[in-house]
Design a protein around this nucleic acid. Sequence first.
DNA 1: TTGAAAGCGCTAACAG
DNA 2: CTGTTAGCGCTTTCAA
Lengths: 359, 359
Amino acid sequence: MTQPPPNSPRQPRRGHGRPTLHDVAGLAAVTRITVSRYLNAPGQVAPETAARICAAIAAIGYVPNLQAGQLASGRSKVVAALIPSINNSIFAETIQALSEGLNNTGYELLLTCTAYDMTREEAQLRALIGWAPAALVMTGRQHSQTTLRLMLAAQLAGTPVIEIWDDRHADEAEPAFARIGFSHAEVGRAMARHLLQQGHRHLAYVHSPIPADFRAQERGDAFAAEAAAAGATLSLFRAGTGDPFDAGRESLNHLLSSQSAVTTVTAAAFSNDNLACGALLEAKRRGIDVPGALSLLGFGDFPIGRQLSPSLSTISPPRGEIGRAAAQALLAALTTNSVTQGVSLPWVLLERDSSARKI
Amino acid sequence: MTQPPPNSPRQPRRGHGRPTLHDVAGLAAVTRITVSRYLNAPGQVAPETAARICAAIAAIGYVPNLQAGQLASGRSKVVAALIPSINNSIFAETIQALSEGLNNTGYELLLTCTAYDMTREEAQLRALIGWAPAALVMTGRQHSQTTLRLMLAAQLAGTPVIEIWDDRHADEAEPAFARIGFSHAEVGRAMARHLLQQGHRHLAYVHSPIPADFRAQERGDAFAAEAAAAGATLSLFRAGTGDPFDAGRESLNHLLSSQSAVTTVTAAAFSNDNLACGALLEAKRRGIDVPGALSLLGFGDFPIGRQLSPSLSTISPPRGEIGRAAAQALLAALTTNSVTQGVSLPWVLLERDSSARKI
DNA sequence: TTGAAAGCGCTAACAG
DNA sequence: CTGTTAGCGCTTTCAA
């Protein structure tokens, strides 16, 4: 039917089927721009015209092409976010909150996972920048040189950039980007202090199985430093990969089998609650008294920790708050064009039974 | 420098700062189209020219504008996916696998959450369609009329559409879309049969707190039907919202307090493992013998279930497989332009201690 | 192997 | 309140 005439000097391209502004305009007997206005600033269109346009849109099932709109306007409605893992319940809650916060603002969340891999982070960021995002949400403050360059370029071009789940480090110059989170070093120190204050002199720390989880690493390092400063002995372990509960069990077994008579560990801290719960369950299985013979302390405040007995002492990080604050900060920066502000969010040490003071 | 001449009749618009093909072309002393070819079909560009272009790109830090490219080419590199919740570990693994499968294929995953709300699903889908996605991934087979219309329109326009985490229902005509998942009705029946085979005649089922979780509802309904068919008595509960472990505990307490002398429930099945684990922990706390006095059966194969003692019997759904199969099906459909094929994926009933046969 | 021209669907700028 | 005109940055078709 719509065959090009045989002598046509050129084959004109035609769109891929979906109805366009043009079609709506034709049906409503107005021009495209009026339809565009109806969609973006309904107030500027006469009610009667608006009704016709509305009917036309419904009739042909028109859905605006966002790519075209954003290209033409030069401003995009995409917030790009990079997180290490979607599987990790810790980030899930933050993202859920961020996503809720962006809901009904017209902004979409474009989310990708780096799998704790800086090379991948760089590639992902590059791909995301291709979407001309209105804002950038990164996780943590450690990035490759190129990643940092891309972030800086974006920020210079006026795109708000924020780093979540981290805070300014003590021996660091003023951060280049707004951070929304907390200091993992402080958490690590607090974890050590909590155990030291209960009189423990022989501590252990079980690291995350992912060395590239910089924030977890930082908590462990700070824990170690604080323990050393207090003159306590410290055994360091790294959990195995695989099921974190099993890894926690194994780490407890390693810990026990590597005990020397003089330095019997009486308190162990873990990179996360799943590891700690595994250790807790294994201790119960082996008949070890928790906290009597061994105190246990986790991180993350995962729901299961509250359920076991003894219940698991842990750090409760501001999971959801980070997402909410990020959404708020971004929207503020995007609408008022102001500078994005970082925030330090509070965390809490939940002193439950697994590290209760020995009476 | 580039001030508009004072008498210029119109203020020309200029882009928003980021370097474009044009800039690269200028630096490399070629035209834009050659740069475009270098990016999309490097083989068609002379090596010498390619080198110049490559240098230019690096020099000015050019990142292609995807929106412009997709608009011009009419084909997008976005896969849009709608899931009920990101917080739910069950979907997290599927999405992670889908995302891995799409990695390095040039396709991006645009992900949004419906929060188990059909109205929201419709709104989200509409927003996603605005991105002219190359493919659509929906969750489940129940959608609003309008959502279905949009999905059908997309499919008609040649966009592969698949529904994950579900399968063809027995009394349903040929599904309009490819489904990748399994039958929740079958799972529900299998759960009931498992308990019936162990001689239980008084069953209970604890529903998900989310009535709009159609798949969970379907498992429960099928469980109930199977129990009724076998002449067993059945107590139905719906778990409370909030911490699922707590909800599971409460449901056990309700169950026990609503016991009549004649029909003492000896086996309870749950909509998910967290609920079941809560009940398991509560049973232990109350000194109820599991499985001696009460058998417990969950769904989902969450890691914690294996760790408790008695370990939790459960259904292990093909979480990751669904994501992998979806990625594979989409890529096949996108590259070979063939029809998307649905798949039924196998699940397993893990018969662990909480429902061990009474000897 | 490279270039010229036209157009993807929409919106900014400026009239009327 | 509505229309005209000229792009957004890229890719398509055809020609050289």
